[in-house]
Nucleic acid binder design. Structure first.
Lengths: 141, 141
DNA sequence: TAAATCACTTGCGGAATGCAAGTGAAATAT
DNA sequence: ATATTTCACTTGCATTCCGCAAGTGATTTA
């Protein structure tokens, strides 16, 4: 018998797939912290300015991992810690994040003007930078 | 006295602003229906394959309008109908939607291969097309 | 050996969601 | 003119999700 999928999407639309994986108030912020701030542990994510609740953070990390967007492995130098990292699928979200940042910067009053200036002047280069950064992390990790 | 803002963002981060306006399971799908399917009324949105609940749809339309992403006006030829349209701010979300569609298409099994092929071959042109379509709608509306 | 730190889990009240049914105004059919 | 249908919503209710505070067990540091 053919194996049934573990869950059903509401539709086959690719945008719906994205929304089901990322459409909530926290997932993209966690990915932002990984991409632009280089965060990789539970406590680092907790320290972010938006103050995610501990149970919600645990849940989002689990979901992102189940979606194949991030991966986790124990820290070899500290058995209590887990190191979360972006998978290639997660790194591939850089253009989505970049466009969302640029859109908000265009239409809302926001901070982080440094990043915005960088994105405006060369979006492609910023994205390449994220890719390189995480390629290195994977090698040394 | 300086007027207090009607609500507070969790942070000044531009990505957080985007997530607060669009980070839920329905808002982006409504915008997709407007952009790629040309939908403009409550019943059209209801007819979408993902089956949004009526109260949630009413709430999301209200929020999107409050955020300045869409606008509404009564249909001159039918007093019961409201016609929803994308504002320039809303049209400006086309690159965000495009990147989300491309990401999902790259990493998930999805439908709507026609749109994906179009986006892959010329993303900029598809976005220009959306702009032109809605510029016309605004003129004739 | 005791205290801190790590990544969580649990319990609880309130908010958001999904579903079914209802509402009132305007349009259409008879 | 009246009845029915269509339109954009509201309302009520059960379930799920969320934020917050507190606790847990494993590991590490003092």
């Amino acid at each position: 018998m053919p194996k049934k999928p573990a869950f059903e999407r509401r539709s086959a639309c690719p945008l719906n797939a994205s929304v089901e994986m990322l459409g909530d108030r926290w997932s993209l912020l966690i990915l932002r912290d990984m991409m632009v701030r280089g965060f990789s542990t539970y406590n680092e994510f907790l320290s972010s300015h938006e103050k995610i609740a501990t149970n919600v953070l645990a849940d989002r990390l689990k979901r992102l991992e189940e979606s194949g967007i991030i991966a986790s492995k124990p820290d070899p130098s500290d058995g209590r810690k887990l190191i979360y990292s972006l998978t290639p699928k997660g790194i591939d979200l850089a253009p989505v994040l970049a466009e969302m940042v640029l859109w908000a910067a265009r239409h809302e009053k926001t901070g982080n003007q440094a990043l915005i200036r960088q994105l405006k002047s060369d979006k492609a280069q910023v994205i390449t930078h994220v890719r390189k950064l995480w390629a290195e992390k994977h090698r040394t990790a």
